[in-house]
Design a protein around this nucleic acid. Structure first.
Ligand SMILES: NC(=O)c1ccc[n+]([C@@H]2O[C@H](COP(=O)([O-])OP(=O)(O)OC[C@H]3O[C@@H](n4cnc5c(N)ncnc54)[C@H](O)[C@@H]3O)[C@@H](O)[C@H]2O)c1
Ligand SMILES: NC(=O)c1ccc[n+]([C@@H]2O[C@H](COP(=O)([O-])OP(=O)(O)OC[C@H]3O[C@@H](n4cnc5c(N)ncnc54)[C@H](O)[C@@H]3O)[C@@H](O)[C@H]2O)c1
Lengths: 251, 251
DNA sequence: ATGTCTTTGTGAACGCGTGCACAAAGATGG
DNA sequence: CCATCTTTGTGCACGCGTTCACAAAGACAT
C-alpha cells in the first residue's frame, strides 16, 4: 500500500523498498517476542514463520539493511532488534498529537501500545469547548485554538486525525502549516497535502468492504440479484483452480 | 513443519485485480457524495481527482467491471454506485460480530459508519463476565460462551477481533470453527487461518512506525547528506542520546 | 586441516500494478 | 448526414515486488 497519492518516484528511501519498510515493524515485533524469551539467534525460516512471510522475502528484506546474519547459524536477535529499530527511527522519541477526541480518539489515547515503540502522546486536541480540560487517559484535552502552539512547543512532526470527515482536511491543513510532516488519518476522507508530507490512512469501512467482496465471491455465485439472507451454509467448495466466471456484460 | 499455512498471494477473484478491489470502496465513497449532490454524470478525470487516484487507473479499474461509461460524456453516477455496490456485495446485509469490547471494540461499536454500507453489528462479545449484559452502543454485550451460538444463529460470516493480542489466535480459531470466513484483526498478532478464510489487519503501531521511518529520513536528508557507504560496516549512531542500546556484534 | 552440513545472500525470472498515449465510440452542432 | 469535439477503453512498456534456486560463507565435527 503506497503512502501517498503524490507521485514521488525520485526520492527512493535510502534504497529500501517501500514494501520492505512496511514489513520491518512485523519483523521487529516477532524479534521482540523472541528477545523476551531470551532466544539468542533465529533462522530466516523460523522468523519468517513467526512474521507470516516467505523466508526468501525476509532475507531479501534484511539484505537491504546490510549483512546482519551469520551463515549456518541465522540472525542474532538482539542485534537485529537494534538494527531494525534504528532503521525505523525508533531509537528516538516521537511526540504525537491526536486531534479529535471522540470515540476513536479516546480509544487511541488509552492505547498502551503507543509508548512501547517510542511514540509518546504529546497532546490531545479537540474543538469542543466542553471537551477541553477534561482528562482522557491521564492527559488533559486541549482546545484546538492551541494547536499551532502545541505543535511548535513540542516539536511534533506526526499527527493523528480522528475528527469527523467533514473537518479532516482543514485540520490536516492546520497541522501541516504548523509543521507536521506525517499524518495518520482515520477519517474517511482523501487528504490533500503538499509535497514532502506523508499521509497514511486507516479506513475500517474500506477493509470491511474488501472482506465483503471476497465473502460474496466465496458464498457462491449462482445468480446475482437475489438477496439470499442465509449465505452461511458452510459449503466446502472444492478449491477449484480459479474457475473463470462469465463476465456480466451490460446491455 | 506443523504450520500448514498456505499463503495465498493475490487470489484473482473473477479476474478483478486485488488492487482494484481495494480502490472500489474509494470510488464508491466519492460517487455517493456526488449522488447526494444530485450530480448526474461524472468524467473519469473528475472522479479520479475526488478519489485521489490517476484517471487512467480509474478507467482501467472500471474496465474490469465492464463498460459502464459513455464516451464523450462520462459515467452515470447512480448506475455506477449500483454497479460497484453490487460488485462489492453491499446490496446485501452483512451481519458482523465484534469480539473484545474494550476501548477499541466499544469505539467501533459506537461508530455510525458501519450501518451506512450494509454492515450491521449483530453482536458484541466479551469474555469478561462483568461486561456481559452491559449495553454498548445500544447493544447488549454477550459473553463469549455464546460465541458459537451467536455466529450460527445470525449467519455471521465476518468477525472483528479487538481483544488483547494474547488471545487473538484462539478467538480467531473459535470464530473460524463457528463458521466465520472473513476476519478483520486489530490485535497486533499474526493470525493463522485455514485456507478459504480471509484475514485483513489494521495495525496502528505499524502505520506509525512506517511514518517514523520516512520522518527520520526526511530529517536526516537536511542535516547530514554524505553517508554514501553504509551497507557493510555498522556505523555509529549519529546522535548521542539513546546510547543505552546494546550494540552487540555477532561473532 | 579438511570435509560436511546448515543457512545466508542474491542473481534471475516472472507476474502484477501503473501510467502513457491513442484509436474508437459516441455526443453535439451545423 | 457529416464534421468536430470530448471522453472512454485499452494496448503497451516499464518498474516494483515476489519467489525460486543456488553458490558462497561460515559453523562444527573429525
Ligand atoms: N469510531 C470508529 O470506530 C471509527 C471507525 C472508522 C472510522 N472512524 C472515523 O474516525 C473519525 C472519528 O470517529 P469517532 O467515532 O471518534 O467520532 P466522534 O464524533 O466520537 O469524535 C469526533 C471528535 O472530533 C472533534 N472535532 C470535531 N471537529 C473538530 C475540529 N475541527 N478540530 C478538532 N476536533 C474536532 C469532536 O469534538 C469529537 O470529539 C470519524 O471521521 C470517523 O468516520 C471512526
Ligand atoms: N485501543 C487502541 O487504540 C488500539 C490501537 C491499536 C491496536 N489495538 C489493539 O486492539 C486490541 C484491543 O485494544 P483495547 O485498547 O480495546 O484493549 P482493552 O483491554 O481495552 O479491551 C480488550 C477487551 O477484550 C476482552 N477480552 C479479553 N479476552 C477475551 C476473549 N478471550 N474473548 C473475548 N473478549 C476478550 C477484554 O475483556 C476487554 O474488554 C488490542 O489487541 C490492542 O493491541 C488497540
Amino acid at each position: 500500500m503506497a503512502t501517498g497519492r503524490t507521485h514521488r518516484p525520485a526520492t527512493r528511501s535510502r534504497g529500501i523498498p517501500e514494501a520492505t519498510v512496511a514489513r520491518l515493524p512485523l519483523y521487529l515485533r516477532a524479534l521482540t517476542a523472541l528477545s523476551e524469551r531470551s532466544v539468542p539467534t533465529v533462522s530466516s525460516e523460523e522468523l519468517a514463520a513467526a512474521a507470516g512471510v516467505n523466508s526468501a522475502k525476509l532475507r531479501k528484506d534484511f539484505s537491504y539493511l546490510g549483512s546482519y546474519g551469520t551463515r549456518g547459524v541465522g540472525y542474532d536477535v538482539e542485534y537485529l532488534v537494534y538494527q531494525i529499530s534504528r532503521e525505523l527511527g525508533l531509537t528516538q522519541d516521537w511526540p504525537v498529537v491526536i486531534v479529535g477526541i471522540g470515540n476513536l480518539g479516546a480509544a487511541l489515547a488509552n492505547y498502551g501500545g503507543f509508548a512501547s515503540r517510542g511514540f509518546r502522546v504529546a497532546a490531545l486536541i479537540d474543538a469542543d469547548p466542553a471537551m477541553a480540560g477534561r482528562q482522557v487517559a491521564g492527559i488533559a484535552v486541549q482546545h484546538s485554538d492551541e494547536l499551532e502552539k502545541i505543535i511548535s512547543d513540542n516539536g511534533v512532526s506526526i499527527g493523528v486525525i480522528t475528527t469527523p470527515p467533514g473537518v479532516a482536511q482543514q485540520v490536516c491543513d492546520r497541522l501541516v502549516a504548523a509543521g507536521v510532516t506525517s499524518i495518520l488519518n482515520f477519517a474517511p476522507t482523501v487528504l490533500s497535502v503538499p509535497d514532502g508530507v506523508d499521509v497514511r490512512k486507516v479506513d475500517l469501512s474500506i477493509e470491511l468492504q474488501i472482506l465483503a467482496f471476497h465473502e460474496q465471491r466465496k458464498a457462491g455465485e449462482e445468480t446475482a440479484g437475489e438477496d439470499a439472507v442465509a449465505a452461511s451454509v458452510p459449503k466446502e467448495t472444492p478449491k477449484g483452480p480459479d474457475g473463470d466466471v462469465p463476465v456480466v456484460m451490460p446491455a
